[in-house]
Design a protein around this nucleic acid. Structure first.
Lengths: 255, 255
DNA sequence: TCCCCACAAGGTGTCAGATACCTTTGCCTC
DNA sequence: GAGGCAAAGGTATCTGACACCTTGTGGGGA
């Protein structure tokens, strides 16, 4: 039968190099430091430069390295980009996935606000405040109606506010997850602004909701901060449902 | 000196191909389907086979493809593997990352229990019940002390219980995230059993805690289910801290 | 007839050598 | 001393070739 003995050499040379380099990067090399040149690595591992290239490309795909032409590979600060593909694929394969993702994000952001109220530093509070001010500025520049440009700016500061809260939590995993979820949810949250208006609310209401969250974080009231965030995101979720049902003219269950 | 095609941006040919293929995979190609061979792709994009290889390697690093020797590249079923890989690196990069991850998992599991109480079906309840029974069986087979084998079995059913709850929530993103986080946390939760004993508790206590969670889910009391899960995981977190501090004090060789 | 083995076809893995182009750096001129 | 230019070092890509793996197929033996 097939009692052919299996060599443990199943791994390809490129895999071996990639794994070894990954261990090196995760273990010893600090973010920002550079790898040796391809030629030198090829000599060190006694493989061709092509094999080194493939290993390095794989690590680039994993988000461990940044590669630019004419420069050596640089070890990358870990970020949430690695999850973004995964979450995007979940959404695309399942329409309901969008709301699953929104629900998960709600849960994580509530915890972010909770932890931020406990661990926020002066610097992280200033960062949150800055984004809130950015939202106000975008609003102040508009005379009555929001132009698309200002709407985009307003939205960017909105997302920035939430990201600043996630960072203020002091929990790095929360920050990574937030970043990863932002990408696939970007469109959804953008159209939530339309739904917000369709439900009879103004951008000023959104600013107020953020202000309340910031106040709670500043005073260190973690329970209130979590609740304020939960309320705000529940409203956002309703905005998304409203905007989507308007767009698709789909009979959506009212809440 | 005939420069081929002037790309105004810095994008390399391999990047263009990789991005295009990524869009294709995330948008149209179903998991399990195969990509054309390298030679065919090279002809289609009018680049060399080497460039195709580098693009494909990058996608493999991103977890979008599975590549084996002698076979065409296969589109990968979305799972938490790439995600798990990244989380593992976070833990290794930062010791505090372990507890960040535990905290995030707590938040997600509390929501899982909350949603499971609302959406559990008869089948998913049976799955949860089955894992709980498995924990009891592992315990019943032990006379007094748990052997390493039974300890492993007990732990496997413990993890299975939590996974069953995540699946019962009906939120696919929660299920994927749970799967992704389980891998890097496996060791931590395993040693939590040691800490559990060191803090004067018995495996029976663990079974009881799970039973309470299941009861709440079965009766549809989402608030109580969330609270029961939160209490249980807070205890587990304490177990991990206890076990880790014991290990640090008296490092014992693993069998 | 059925099973097993050998072989061919198609695929990926890896090597070597070469050219184009980008980045950095240091020298040289003004 | 400042600005420009050229060389060095690095990556991006191509061509061509060979090794090895996987799968399917057909022939030979039980």
């Amino acid at each position: 039968m097939q009692d052919r003995e299996r060599r443990p050499d199943q791994q390809t040379a490129a895999s071996v190099v990639a794994n070894h380099l990954a261990d090196l990067i995760l273990g010893e090399l600090a973010p920002g430091s550079t790898l040796p040149s391809e030629a030198e690595l090829a000599a060190r591992y006694d493989v061709s430069r092509l094999t080194i290239r493939e290993a390095v490309k794989r690590l680039e795909g994993r988000g461990l390295l940044v590669i630019a032409r004419g420069r050596k590979a640089v070890v990358r600060e870990p970020d949430g980009a690695a999850f973004a593909d995964f979450l995007t694929s979940v959404i695309r394969y399942d329409p309901k996935g969008l709301f699953d993702l929104v629900a998960v994000r709600l849960s994580l952001e509530v915890q972010s606000a909770h932890l931020a109220a406990k661990h926020a530093t002066r610097a992280s509070l200033a960062a949150i405040e800055g984004e809130l001010q950015g939202m106000r500025d975008s609003l102040a520049q508009s005379d009555g109606g929001l132009s698309l440009e200002l709407e985009t700016s307003f939205h960017a500061h909105d997302v920035g506010f939430h990201e600043a809260v996630a960072l203020a939590s002091g929990n790095r995993v929360l920050g990574y997850l937030f970043e990863a979820m932002s990408q696939p949810l970007r469109e959804a949250f953008f159209i939530s602004q339309r739904g917000h208006a369709q439900r009879g609310h103004t951008p000023g209401d959104t600013v107020d909701a953020h202000q309340r969250i910031l106040d709670c974080i500043r005073t260190g009231d973690s329970r209130a901060a979590a609740e304020a965030m939960r309320l705000h995101l529940k409203n956002t979720e309703r905005d998304i449902r409203t905007a989507l049902s308007q767009l698709a003219l789909r009979p959506a269950p009212r809440e």
